[in-house]
Each structure stands twice: as C-alpha cells, then as structure tokens.
Design a protein around this nucleic acid. Structure first.
Lengths: 343, 343
DNA sequence: TGCAAACTTGCAAACGCTTGCAGCCAGACA
DNA sequence: TGTCTGGCTGCAAGCGTTTGCAAGTTTGCA
C-alpha cells in the first residue's frame, strides 16, 4: 500500500497551502469558487482521506457519537434503533461507537470511560425497555440524550414511546371493530410502560363509555407460558371477553396458544391486538397479529437529530436549546387478528 | 466542568516528565516499580483520561475496530455477534465503531470510507446470513476478518457456521429418537447455507443407512405462509414423514402451523427440529422448538480474537500468521419438539 | 492615479500524546 | 580514583490537522 496521502500532498498537487486545502474541504474560510473546486477535485483524484484523529485532536470535534445500551442481543429493538440513529448520523458525517453494558454498572462505567477517552462528541444513552434511569455521573457535562428512558427531571433531552397513546390506539382499534368487552393481559414489571399502557387501556374504555371491569385485567411475565396461563383465566370465564389487548407481542403469542387450545378461532371467536410490532413474530403468527408499533427506528433518528441540535448550539454556549422530552407516537399495524365480535 | 486533565498535569503532580508518565501508563520503557506505581496512583487520583485521538495520531493505533454489517435491524443476530465481538474487544481495550450498509454498495463504500478516515485498526466485515462475498476494494491492506461470510480464496480470515455439521446434528437428533422417515423443508435462496444443510441432511441419512427419498425434500422462502404450504405438501401424503427437519426457525413455525391445522400433535404425531435457535421464537413456540444454535456470539468473539492475533503480528510484519478460515460448531438446544415416532 | 475596502491565501502555532535517543547516576571493576 | 556498564528518566521532535492572524492581491471609487 502506497504511503497514505495527507493534506500536504493535496496542497502540493494543487499548488496551494495547507490552509487553503483545509478551508476548501471543510467549507470554512473565504475561498474563491475556482480554488475550492480545484482543490476538491485534486483531493478526489488523489483519493485523499482526511485523518480524523488529527482533525479531531485539533478541532476538538471527533465526529463520533457514543451509543450506550443496556441490551442489544435478544431482540432486534436495538438494531432498529441503531439503524435509525446511524442513518441520521451519516447525514451529519458522524459515526457511531457503540457499547453494550449488559446492565452491569461496573461494565457501564468502563464503557463510558472508553467512549470519553475517544472524545465522543455526544452520547445516546439507551435502554431497550422504556425505563426510569439515573444518568451516570461520568456523563455530566457531556451532551447526552436519553432513548427509551427518562429521568425524573427535565435537565436532559429524552425520547420514549407514548405508552398511553399506544394503548389507546390499540383499544380503539378493538372498539372500532365493535368490541365492548375487552380484556387486558398486562405485564408484571414495574416500568413506566406497565402503568402507561394500563392507564391508557382504562382511560380509553371510559372515554368510549365502557365501564372498566377490573376482573378483565390480568398480568403475566413475558414468557409465553405465563401469558398462556393469564389468558386462560380470562378465556375460561363464561362471560369471556370478545377481544384481548396484550401488553406485548410475546404475551399475545401466549394468548394465541390459549385460544388455540380452546378451539377459539382468531379473529372469528376472539380478536387480539398488542403492542410491539415485533415483525418477525407478528408476521409469522397465524393469523398475522395486529400490533401497535414501537417506533424504534424513529426514536434512534430523533435522538441523533436532537443531539445535532444541541451540539450545534454548544459553540454559542448560552443560547443552548432547552432540553426536550418527547413521547413519540406509535402507529398501528394491522394484519388479521382483529375482526368484529361474535354475536 | 473543570479543564480536562492532561498527561502534563499528571507529570507535574507526580514530579516526573511526560515521558515517564506515558511509559508508566502504557507499560512500555524501563521504569522502576516505585515510579510506575506512584505515577499510576497520581493519575488515578487526578482522574486522568488519556486522549485517544492524540495517542492514536501519534502511535498510529486508534484502538478502534470497525464493524460493518449488511443487516442489523430485523433479527437479533447482529446483536449477538456484536455482543461477542464487543466483550472480546473490551479485553483488548478496543472499542467498536459500527456501520450498517443495508446491503447497498454505495452506502457501504461511504461507510467503509468513514471508518478508514477514523483510522480503525481493523475491520470485521460481517454478513448476517452466511454468504459468499467479494471483499470491497477499499479494504485491501486493512486487517480484516470476515464473519458469516467467505470469499472463494484463502487470502483472508473468516468464520462461518459449520452448516453441514449443523444439519448433521439436527438430523441425528431425530434419528436418535427413532425416526427413519425424515422430511426436509429447505429454503430457496442460493447461499452456502442452503447447499450445506441440504448436503448435511443427505449425508447424515446415508451414514445411518437410510435411503434418501428426494420427494421428502421441499423448499420455501422464509415466510411462514410459504413454509406452511411446503410443509403441507409433505404432511398431506399418506406416507407422511414422522419428523421434519427445517432450514430455520421461521420455517419451523410454518411447519407447526401446518401440523396444527391438520390436528397433528407435536411431538407425539410429528417431531420437528430446525436450525437457528432464534430464542425469542423457539422459546415462545408451543411446544418449545428443538433447534441447532447458530453460534453468533462465538463468531463475534472469534473474529475479534483473530483480528487481535493478526494485528499483533502486524508489527513484526513478515511473520504474520496465515489467514485462517474456520467453520464453527453449532450446538443443539433441545426443548420439547422431538419425541419418538408414532408407531 | 491613489487609497481603502474587500477578497484571497498562507504562516506558523497549537492539539495531547508517543518515542528515538541522549543524559544522568550508581555501582562494579581495574 | 577513573572508566564502564546498565538501569532510569527526560528532551524534543513529530503525528496530520485546524485556525488566529497577517500578508498579498484586486477592485471600486474619488
């Protein structure tokens, strides 16, 4: 491999100074269009690739965004977030440096330390299941946005799914199909999603003049076995619900199995809707599962764009934009698991 | 935030020169244990975090490994690979810089270019479904290892699952349970896995003295609908197989559905085994699916370790280790989908 | 024709670290 | 006592960019 071409080679070839090349390439300074064009084409010809270590060192902008997540390997959630983040990052000429902490504080500390040593320009601190978190101390002073996580306060930007809205969308989908007797298979973890979706479920029923029957609410952990048992409780009643709203797709899968065991056909005898739109599951189920999508891709994208905004203002210091906390809309994806109630 | 502490602050505080601090921290040079210890504790007290942009610039080792993948968002495969890679990387004090190419050559080119600008020390070029690839030209001269992908030649290290072995493991699992009439639901893509698993299926049957009945082999794409249809072909025969070996878990899901529709119980009437061990699916299915695991975590780990080996020798140049291509063993994970054949 | 204003371009000093090489100091040996 | 040797430590020169500032060149206008 021939020696790597540096900015001085470009300068020599174009017959200008280092400064001019730098200006031409970065768009800074005042250059005549002619010069700029010439330098650029020479650089392209020479296949010049700036050394970002050097430019980062000097300019104090590494063009690297750190992405720290607690979980990355059991679901495609992180992948979708990463995809959104990455594509948005590319637009800013940023690249992502990611670490998985496995929710281990010791490891998280070391990982963040590593990112900081690499002088990342900002950090996306992500959780894969909407959680309330405390931002690690090492992160104070570092531009950070929280993803699928929020703190109690409003000192830092964050994006989470609109849990209540998602539940509303799901339940209204059922109501629109004619259902009035709608059971809810909740989950048991103590996370914001649990309460948010439950609240959404109750509020939506009431908003449509349906009295909330608390005995129609049951909970399970996210294993199908547990969900099956929870669904059984509801389906074995003589006054069983005509539709089930499930906390997530895995629980919906348990509900499917419970229905199947009892010879109940979906959606003829029982309609089911859930939240997640875990595509590889929802598509594979028979019939396809109607599910409200958690907007992972969009959250990743938003987080980066938000970071871009805050970093941009960072130079001008004081007029930094106030942190923003947003709840993102969750759209419904319909397949074939919802139909009118049996009469 | 107080001004960032640099190596000179440490030097001043410890009463030694920059050189000594650098040596003490990196373990290079000849230092008395006393000095080394002292410097280290001072550095720790000051909370010194070396600037990797600077050290990378000078030493020409960025401590960053690039990870380029074609697919990252629809399955947890990439996540598992990343986890393995990341944990191995941390041991070498490396960090991962990740790009997703969406299999778009233009975008791939730009992404690799970005990694190169950041002066990554090496690259893991990953595909999420064992494929034959041509290594992008931009990568020549850059230490690279292929993951879940291979070229025709042996110029570059690579790791792929042992497809034939995986098929053998699956089929022998069925044979061990007593099955002799074993159908195969293959896939239709033209990738090494297709041929490898098919060869493994045939070879294993023969090795056990079972004649291969080509009419028991059928194929579908990886949608459950298509798999359902393919399974139906086999299950509707009067001499239907007592067991089904499926190309992957999604196809197995289709097979489950076809069985269900026909009132065939698993594993009593029909045994099913597949390859993937896509846990979130295999665990959720009823009954749990016996599946041969694709060793994603281990492949990620191996790729990094291999890169470490090749980079280490890179200084000594000529005695660089010869590239190594390995096929990784795939272990069987049993659940409840295989039993003895009905008599 | 002369001079300021407006453009262009280049100089040279960092950025924070690593590293080849030289210097220093003890103790050992003659 | 003088000269070596070998173990420790420090000097200073970069690594490849960016950027504050200054210098040089046009252009416009009186």
């Amino acid at each position: 491999m021939s020696k790597r071409v540096g900015i001085r080679d470009v300068a020599a070839a174009a017959g200008v100074s280092l400064t001019t090349v730098s200006h031409a390439l970065s768009g800074a300074g005042q250059l005549s269009d002619a010069t700029r064009e010439r330098v650029r084409s020479v650089a392209a010809d020479l296949n010049y690739a700036p050394n970002r270590l050097a430019s980062g060192l000097r300019s104090k902008r590494s063009q690297i965004i750190g992405f720290v997540s607690d979980e990355i390997s059991t679901t495609p959630y992180a992948g979708r977030v990463l995809l959104g983040a990455q594509e948005a990052a590319a637009k800013n000429d940023w690249v992502l440096m990611i670490v998985n902490t496995s929710a281990d504080p010791r490891f998280e500390g070391r990982s963040i330390e590593a990112l900081l040593q690499h002088r990342v320009d900002g950090i996306i601190y992500a959780r894969m299941y909407h959680q309330t978190v405390a931002v690690p101390e090492a992160l104070v002073g570092v531009p950070t946005v929280l993803l699928d996580a929020s703190t109690g306060n409003d000192h830092i930007s964050s994006v989470v799914p609109d849990e209540e809205g998602a539940a509303r969308t799901a339940v209204e989908h059922l109501i629109a199909a004619g259902h009035r007797r709608i059971g809810y298979l909740s989950n048991v973890d103590d996370i914001p999603a649990t309460r948010g979706r439950l609240d959404g479920y109750r509020a939506t029923l009431r908003a449509h003049g349906i009295e909330v029957d608390e005995t129609l609410i049951t909970a399970s952990d996210s294993t199908t076995a547990s969900a099956r048992a929870a669904a059984a409780l509801l389906l074995d009643r003589s006054d069983r619900p005509t539709a089930l709203f499930c906390f997530n797709d895995r629980i919906a899968m348990g509900a499917y199995q419970a229905a199947q065991t009892r010879g109940l056909r979906i959606p003829d005898d029982l309609s089911i809707v859930s939240i997640d739109n875990f595509e590889i599951l929802a598509d594979a189920m028979l019939p396809g599962l109607d599910s409200v999508a958690l907007p992972h891709y969009e959250m990743g994208q938003w987080a980066i764009e938000r970071l871009a905004l805050e970093l941009q203002a960072d130079g001008d210091d004081d007029d930094a934009p106030a942190p923003q906390q947003i709840r993102m809309h969750c759209p419904l994806v319909t397949r074939q698991s919802v139909g009118p109630p049996p009469h």
